[in-house]
Nucleic acid binder design. Structure first.
Lengths: 247, 247
DNA sequence: GATGCATTAATGTCTATACATATTCTGCCG
DNA sequence: CGGCAGAATATGTATAGACATTAATGCATC
């Protein structure tokens, strides 16, 4: 095979050269042909193999590094990375969107809205200083007229003073925050909990029923924006995460 | 400020130019200065601003695209992406490692191991053809001597014939698969379930107690590798996912 | 006003070259 | 044999130019 003879770009418009190189390398790695730790060919070898410039090979490998498939060491070469098997991209859907996508009708109901100083028993990290005010919201998300999730939320009024002016009667706080407050970091905690009497009543399930609890805390440059706890009816909601190494 | 006057590389070794451009753009986006949907400067404008070649700007923006911060449209320009707020990187820890990291002792117990043909009521997609054999495993993971998770697993023996030779008495099937079988795709499903009588007995909880159910299916080039369902004691286990936009 | 076409501007890809930087390797010397 | 200086080499970054591709734009036509 004359490796350096490359068809003209016009003769092969199906894919770009970069794309072909990337696909080839990914295939070698994902098939297990090149095991983790294996040294892949040097840039100059790939240049010769594909008959292209070094920048082309370099950009491809840089992409694979960004995707976590390859690690590089100067002078030593490029190596297949140890697979980070235990990480997955979890999509936590916007409830109105998700419910609509399932062909069900969405309804939102505000149950309580209170402005108050932060307390000791509030989730940690909401405010370091005393006297900071928070907005405490309780609301229900319905799918097809049945309660799906009970949401309890605290919004830091020092980080998001604008939230004090919103009544959240029509728009869910999650949706409002998404559109008004940028964030830099978030943490999710997923657990299973038995419904307390209060939760059971709100969700229309029996006391002690299994609920999926999703807690999310969001920061903006180190300042807490919001803390939210959503309790889903366990019989009605799953979180799904799908992952393939290249993203 | 003479924007096109750039210090010589030797005079400013603190960071590379690409890195500075990237940091600047990220700051504009994450601070909310450039809201989602905002058109960022054209490549030729950034070239002029930083006094560099177009490839330099291009590589930076390509990185931001890969990171999901920016979307590009030919002729139209580059735009700040709508934040995919609801996607997070979920780390699903290796149980022995995770438990050890918490300072607890880990123990593994194989409860059942059976080789049998695939059945109709097995999870879909395990095998398209009839007569394919699977390895069915049931095992328990202990933390500090107390049951933490009940695991039920099916391994496709057509995809992973080597698994038939392993007895899984000492090594957990998850750990074995990690080290022996590469994978290309995985799907996770997280839900809350009430413990059945059988599950309750295995985990040492009362019947009906809330359990966190983690189902994972793994493929290799379209062929199912394994399907696993882990039921965690709801009072003893949370999944945690932490996410920041740049990864 | 609606439709179709040519123009144009911005991104997408690639080349050939250059120098910087880090690290491995080699061989010399004690 | 061990340690150290220097050579060799692979990656890291950047440049200036070229042409391809695509989609918004405005203009001419129906």
């Amino acid at each position: 095979m004359p490796a350096t003879l490359r068809p003209s770009p016009l003769a092969e418009p199906s894919q770009t050269l970069s794309h072909r190189i990337r696909t080839d390398l990914e295939a070698k790695i994902l098939s297990g042909d090149w095991a983790p730790g294996h040294r892949i060919p040097f840039e100059h070898e790939l240049m010769a193999q594909y008959g292209c410039a070094r920048m082309t090979v370099n950009k491809v490998i840089a992409g694979l590094v960004a995707a976590g498939l390859i690690e590089r060491r100067r002078r030593a070469g490029s190596f297949v990375a140890q697979p980070r098997i235990h990480s997955a991209v979890l999509r936590i859907p916007d409830l109105p969107v998700e419910i609509a996508a399932r062909g069900e009708t969405y309804r939102y109901q505000l149950i309580a809205r209170k402005r108050r100083p932060v307390r000791q028993d509030d989730p940690a990290g909401l405010a370091d200083e005393e006297g900071v005010e928070v907005l405490e919201l309780t609301c229900l998300h319905y799918a097809n007229g049945r309660p799906l999730a009970l949401e309890q939320r605290l919004i830091s009024l020092s980080t998001v003073p604008g939230a004090a002016e919103v009544d959240f009667a029509a728009v869910a706080p999650g949706s409002w925050l998404l559109q008004h407050v940028p964030w830099t970091e978030a943490e999710h905690r997923i657990s299973a909990r038995a419904a307390t009497a209060r939760v059971a009543e709100a969700l229309g399930v029996t006391k002690g029923a299994a609920c999926l609890c999703l807690e999310r805390r969001t920061w903006r440059s180190g300042e807490t924006v919001t803390h939210v706890r959503q309790l889903f009816r366990g019989d009605a909601y799953d979180l799904v995460a799908r992952f393939s190494p290249q993203g």
